[in-house]
Every structure is written in C-alpha cells, then in structure tokens.
Design a binder for these strands. Structure first.
Lengths: 339, 339
DNA sequence: CAAAGTCGACCGCCCTAATTC
DNA sequence: AGAATTAGGGCGGTCGACTTT
C-alpha cells in the first residue's frame, strides 16, 4: 500500500509492531493468532501497524515454541513421469490449501539407505509428517523398525509394510482393461508388465492374470518392461518377430506407445490385426496412432487423499490405515476392436 | 544401532547430549558445526552420545538464531508437463546437494496476485531465495516494485524484468530446427506456436521468423496452440482442410503429436507429404509415428544452473544477472525429409 | 599464550499467570 | 467480577567473552 516504509523487513519483530500500535507484544500475538479478548478497535490498530511495517511473523520462532513447523515432507520418486508428477502437483496444492508447506526430496534411487537419508533431511527440517511416493515393493521395509517420530503416509497399492497407505485400485483397473478385451472376443491376451517389484506393476499383472484364469483363458508368462516407451518398443519387436497375439494389455501408456511403434514397423495394423490397451490415460494417449484405449487414473484424487490422510493422522494417531481405493475407469478409443 | 534408547526424540536437546557426553552444551555445538578447538577424543564421545540419543538438532532453533533457514522457495507452474517437471526435479536435487531444502508452491494460475501470495507464503517460511518457474511473459512484472527481501531467480528466456534469469536459448534452438528444414529444401515452412505470452513460445516464434526472413522465404501468420497435443490436433485439422504446407515447425512435441494425428486423419504421410519438426525431445518422441525430428532441451542443466545462480546470489548480491544460454541440439529422426 | 571448555545473552514468538480497567 | 491487556519464562540453538589447562 504505502510506499517507503519498509525497513529491511526481515528484522521487524512483534515488538516493533506492538510499539507502533501502542500495545504490548502479547496483544499483537493475540491478533496474529485470532485469539479472543482483543477489542475490535485495538485489533484494527494492530493490523494497521502490521501492514505499515510489512511485518511477517517468523516461522522459525513460531515453530520453535509451538513445536509445529506447519511443514510436511514429501519423498518422491518416479519423476518426471506424468503420473508421479501429477500426484506431487495435486498433493502440493492440497497441502497449501490446508495451510501446510511441503518440502520435497527426490532421491536418486530407491535403496533403503538413500530413502532413509532423504527422510532424515526432512526430519531435520522438523516436518510434521512424511509422505512417501515410491511405487517399489519393499521401500516401506526400509522404514521398518525405525522410529521416525512423525506419521508416515505412503502411496502403495499393496497392503503391506507400516504406515498409512493411499492408492487407486490397480488390480480393479487391470481387470477392467482385460475385461474389455475379453468382451470383444479376444482370448489370446498378452501382458507387457511394468518392472518386477513395482507394486503397481504387480497389481496390474495380478488383475490381468485373474481376469484370464477366471475366464478360463490361457495365461502365459508376462513380458517385462520398465515403464519407458523404449522398453515397450523393444519388447514389441521381439514379440512380434515370433508371433502376433490377438490382443495386448500394456502396463502403461508410454510402453503402449512404444509397442504401437513396433506394430507399425512390423507392418501390422492396430486394431485390425491386434488390439492394444494401455494404462494411465496420459493426455497424449488420445493422439497416439491410433488413439489409445486405456485406463484413466485420477492422480489428482490421489494427491488429495494423501493430504487428507496426513491431516487425519496428525489429528489422531489411529485413523484408518488404508483408504478405500477407487477403481479407475476404462476409456475406450481406437486401439481395440471386436475380434 | 543400539535398541531401546530413544526417548520420543523430538524432545532431545543439545543439553541432553552434553550431559551424556560429560561436556558443556557449547562443546556439543562445536562438534555439530565442525568448529575447531575440540579434542578428537572429546569429539568422539559427543558423536557417540548423539548417536545413542538419536539426537537431531532443531532446524527451527538454529534458523532462529542464525537467520538462515537453509531453505529455498520454488514457485512452479506448468506441471505436470515434462519440461517443467524435469526442471523441478533437477533443481530439487541440486539444492539438496548444496545442503538446501526446497519448499515448492504450485499456484493455480499465473495472475500477479496469485503469484505474489504464493511467494508470500514462502517468505513466511523464511526461505533464503525464491526461484520462479513460470514461462509467461510479464510474470516478472508482478514482482516489480515489491521488496521481497530475498533474491529472486527466474527461468526466463527473454531479457526482461527484475531478478536473475536462467534459460536455454529458445531462439537458437528454433533457428536450428527451421535451418534443418531449409537445408532439406523446404521453403513453405509454417509454425504452430505455443500460447501468446509464453516467453519460450515467443522466442521460438522469433527464431522461426528470422530464419525464414534471413533465407528470403515467405513468412506467414503463425498458428497458435496452447502446448497441448489436443491443440496441435485441432490446429492441424483446420490447416490441412485448407492446404498442405511443405513443412511445419511445431512449438513443442506434444502439439507435434497432435499434428501428426491430424495428418494421418487427412490421409497424409509424414515425411513424404509433409515434414514436421518438434521441440523438447520428450522421451516418447522417439516412438511417435513417425519418430519425431525435434530439438533437445537439457532441462537437467537448467535445474543445475538455477541452483548455482541461487548460490552465487546468496554469496554476493551482484553476481551476473543472466547466465550464458546454451543452444539446444537438433535430433534428427524420421519426420523430416528432403523435398 | 595457545588450546579446550564453560557461561550467559539473545534470536522472535507463544503461553500461563498476574494485573488493570 | 469479568473482560482486556501486560509481564515474564522458556522453546533449542549460536556466538562472543571469559576461565581453565
């Protein structure tokens, strides 16, 4: 508002405000924290002084005395892929909306030691909770027997390890994908899975497997990719050199893209010669060649649920340990057709 | 190490450590901060005590007295797209390597007020610097005449506004892309640009424009997308309904994907009927149909340079205001061919 | 006179208790 | 007597000055 009245404002304290407003520092504290017993006129004078001095309360001082940093730590792997990035984005926004700042750590790998040291840095920043976004099976084991001192909330699709878990129903999503293929009359349905050890990969694999065996269809060994389009391409090449399945359920959209690439190189047409279903529904999948039938994951919801899990955990320690998982929807486009 | 010796460790203080080690709290502080004048044997005893108590120094208390939070704030827009996500990832890692934690804020829009309030939240967390990742022209204006109190470092490809700027040479990259097309003998080269107002979009547009006029070629009005593959698709549809240009330089890979989709719908073949060049080199572009010729941006380098700009700014206030911008490389794949 | 340690003030804020109106 | 306000003691560190080998 008014110009020329800032004095290197990192040095302005609650006492300066008090002096200017003609009250005690404690009264200023009261208005700062919306506590009662402050006359409206006094409050107004104080607020006026705050504005005039560009006063910003010191979070450090406040954290020191309240023992609440209003900060939560996020350990995230898998970036810059679309899914993880989307979850991080949504989580950051939800946290901010709840009045929390989030400190992010992106460890270089998912070794127990690396994860632990990333968390230690966060603990040192006195975060009030730690959120773990690392889809690998066993990452939670790294936290076993380690008294963090703060709640741990993880994105995990398997019911295992300590901490609170949040996820979407990968198994259910996979069943929908394969079910779609089955409804179209396909029986010979292969699966290009994500890396062994990824909880999501394993759950999708399980969904595919169960859908086939429940339908009395032959279950073959799944092929293993690493989520990258390159791996989808490579696997597709090898596979198609041997035989052409009726349909393929690919573990994510990137690998599906690589697989589509391989089909073209092999002179095959999708969906005429072979049906393909992906997983994730990244924004680009609508423009793949052909537009990809896939399973939509609501990453935004995951971020929001993470934050609400954090909040309920902060509120009382024994809130539910795993929230209900929504089943992702199938998005039918042009990469699948009736046999 | 040893079991059963943790006492709700958020309450452990430097005094507890001192007592256990049989020294004064000051001596503990010395070993904590690697200061001299501590006998090796004493140091060892203190470290032993620290381990035994699971002692973690309170960042809040330290920040309060040193006035250094060891935290830096990041205001990032554009997520979850690949480029911005990659920069954020790289920046986080570089910051961590330098001993800084980073608090991220992802504003919902790029209005001045929104940006400003996001920064205020960061200031309140007493960050030591603010990094702004918002490609829009004019976002820096929102900070004009506002005494932040901490250095401001921005990713910006245009030399404008306050603060330190870091970027890759968008203009140079665009010239390389268009130069490639020209070398292949194309003269009728259209441009599908990113949204008006995006600094990167404007710089790439300028590069395209200058390449054409320097080559004595006709410059038409650029088409405007919004970076999404959907917009590339829509624009492609409209364009191709009217006429088929020899070549198109598309502002990013996503829009290029959408455009490729449109060419297929129009029954055109790339690169036989029309050459296409993208920008970014997202990992998927190698598997587009056809594999995309594009310009590779080294996002990791941007993240690293951001952090080193922060450090030099923290070290002394008048370090260079804009670092040298590298020119992104051209990656030739299968979407372009000689006329 | 070094090196190794100890003491005590202070960073900016919140909380409880005491005081004033 | 009760509402409004003030005084003072930490929170957990760092740093300078001072004391002990």
């Amino acid at each position: 508002m008014s110009p020329n009245d800032d004095q290197s404002h990192s040095a302005t304290t609650i006492f300066d405000v008090a002096r200017l407003a003609g009250v005690s520092h404690q009264t200023v504290s009261r208005v700062l924290n919306d506590l009662p017993n402050v006359r409206a006129s006094t409050r107004e004078r104080v607020e006026q002084a705050i504005r005039q001095l560009h006063y910003v309360p010191s979070q450090a001082a406040r954290a020191l005395v309240t023992r609440r940093s209003r900060t939560i730590g996020l350990v995230a792997t898998g970036l810059p892929d679309f899914g993880p990035s989307s979850i991080v984005l949504s989580f950051n926004r939800s946290a901010r909306a709840a009045g929390y700042a989030v400190i992010t750590s992106n460890p270089a790998d998912i070794e127990g030691a690396t994860l632990r040291s990333a968390s230690e840095v966060l603990i040192r920043q006195s975060v009030e909770a730690i959120v773990l976004l690392a889809a690998e099976r066993g990452v939670l084991d790294a936290f076993d027997g380690w008294e963090l001192g703060v709640p741990l909330i993880a994105v995990a699709s398997e019911p295992r390890g300590r901490g609170v878990r949040v996820s979407l129903d990968q198994y259910g999503g996979a069943r929908r994908a394969v079910g779609h293929l089955q409804e179209l009359g396909h029986r010979d349905i292969l699966h290009i899975a994500g890396p062994a050890g990824s909880m999501d990969a394993e759950e999708r694999l399980r969904g595919w497997h169960d859908a086939l065996s429940d339908g009395g269809m032959p279950v073959t060994e799944p092929l293993r990719g690493d989520w990258s389009s390159g791996s989808g391409h490579r696997i597709g090449r090898q596979l198609l050199a041997e035989r052409v399945p009726e349909a393929v359920f690919v573990g994510n959209d990137q690998m599906a893209l690589g697989f589509l690439h391989a089909t073209q190189e092999a002179g095959l047409r999708v969906p005429d010669d072979i049906s393909v279903v992906g997983f994730d529904d990244v924004p680009e999948s609508a423009h793949f060649s052909p537009p990809l039938t896939t399973v939509r994951q609501d990453f935004t919801a995951v971020g929001q649920e993470l934050m609400s899990a954090v909040l309920s955990q902060l509120r009382d320690e024994d809130s539910p340990v795993m929230s209900a998982m929504r089943i992702p929807e199938l998005v039918v486009r042009a990469s699948t057709r009736r046999r």
